[in-house]
């Protein structure tokens, strides 16, 4: 039986920055070009990691590239992002990372001490995360390319027993948990670029969320229906993806979303929505209603999870969308961004 050639729905004539920002444009590229060609005409919803069956053993596998400017910033550096990002993608897919391989694309002229600092950061992050860096590759490109360095990590891991995550498992009435305050990473990077002349006592939240995921798995096991780490595009993007994939509605209570003052302040000054800002050390979990309290307690009792919060729930409406409600009853839909969040003055 022959299947029809997959249809390319991506019509943009050229690649733009927005296609890498994690929002709608990224989705269009993935759904419209990569998925039809690579995954066939009816792929399952794309998750943070692929679960692959090798002769009866299920392993999780994922990859991620890290391009960040500046390379070093308060709270971390590109090397740490590269390790934690991949460990986290595996964790929120329900897997414990065992090993990473790393690929460096380096710009000719990059001072060795900068490279060494990043490699040391990666080693330290890997040790903290309990993961082995098993191998790698290096390429060097001409001066003027690669923004000093690009790092790609690919990770492999074993499934955490008891967890079975999928958008299909999400039910009406499920509760939405968030591991900690939002926006720290994205705002730290924005400030570290120095273009906006803002200063604040903020650090990237980059860390492995595996210990928190494991605590959650221990406490409620199959009660966890879905997880995601809200990186580029923020909480809004991750939850919109879920709403789209499961066809239900997500309702958030604005006053319950944890956020540091400095992140709020920067967002207000620049006209940004914290729900669209990248995080590198947080994750969202959708948990069965009757187990939500136990889940929240488990997170809060784990080091690093003290600020975890129950921020909303899943409902019938608004189908396929995310709604944020205030304490006084006003509400608004929060959509995915098209591209990167831009400061505004109006």
């Amino acid at each position: 039986m022959t299947t029809a050639a997959p249809k390319i729905r991506f019509r943009d004539p050229q690649v733009e920055m927005a296609h890498g920002a994690g929002g709608k444009a990224s989705r269009r590229l993935i759904d419209g070009l990569f998925a039809p060609i690579l995954f066939g005409s009816a792929p399952a919803p794309l998750g943070d990691a692929a679960h692959i069956n090798i002769n009866g053993t299920c392993v999780a596998m994922t990859t991620d590239s890290f391009v960040v400017r500046p390379l070093r910033f308060p709270g971390g550096s590109i090397g740490e992002l590269a390790v934690n990002g991949t460990v986290n993608d595996l964790a929120v897919s329900g897997a414990r990372a065992q090993a990473l391989v790393v690929s460096y694309v380096l710009e000719a002229g990059l001072p060795t001490e900068i490279l060494e600092a990043e490699v040391r950061s990666m080693a330290a992050a890997a040790a903290t995360a309990g993961v082995v860096i098993a191998g790698g590759d290096t390429k060097v490109v001409e001066h003027g390319k690669a923004d000093q360095m690009y790092i790609t990590t690919s990770g492999i891991g074993r499934l955490i027993p008891g967890l079975s995550i999928s958008p299909a498992a999400v039910r009406r009435g499920d509760k939405i948990l968030l591991s900690g305050p939002i926006g720290d990473h994205g705002i730290t990077i924005l400030l570290a670029r120095g273009e906006l002349d803002l200063e604040a006592d903020l650090r990237s939240d980059t860390r492995s969320v595996l210990p928190l995921v494991e605590a959650l798995a221990d406490a409620v096991g199959a009660g966890v229906h879905w997880m995601r780490d809200p990186t580029r595009g923020g909480v809004a993007t991750s939850l919109n993806e879920l709403a789209h994939d499961c066809g239900l509605g997500i309702m958030l209570s604005e006053d319950r979303i944890p956020i540091r003052d400095e992140v709020r302040g920067a967002c207000e000054l620049l006209g940004l929505d914290p729900l669209h800002i990248a995080n590198e050390g947080q994750f969202l979990a959708v948990v069965a209603a009757e187990q939500a309290e136990a889940a929240l307690d488990a997170l809060r009792e784990t080091p690093g999870g003290e600020e975890a919060a129950l921020i909303g729930e899943v409902g019938e409406q608004p189908a396929g969308a995310v709604l944020v409600t205030t304490l006084y009853g006003g509400s608004r839909i929060v959509d995915m961004l098209v591209g990167d969040p831009l400061p505004r003055i109006c």
């Binding site: 209570s253 006209g271 019938e316 839909i333």
Partner: peptide, 27 residues
């Protein structure tokens, strides 16, 4: 423009339905 009426309506409103009030009871 984020303050343009079309963008504001599109981004914030146009998929809200009346069913919402039954989920989050208003004061």
């Amino acid at each position: 423009s984020s303050e343009g009426s079309c963008a504001a309506y599109y981004n914030y409103e146009h998929r809200k339905t009346a069913a919402l009030t039954s989920v989050f009871p208003l004061p």
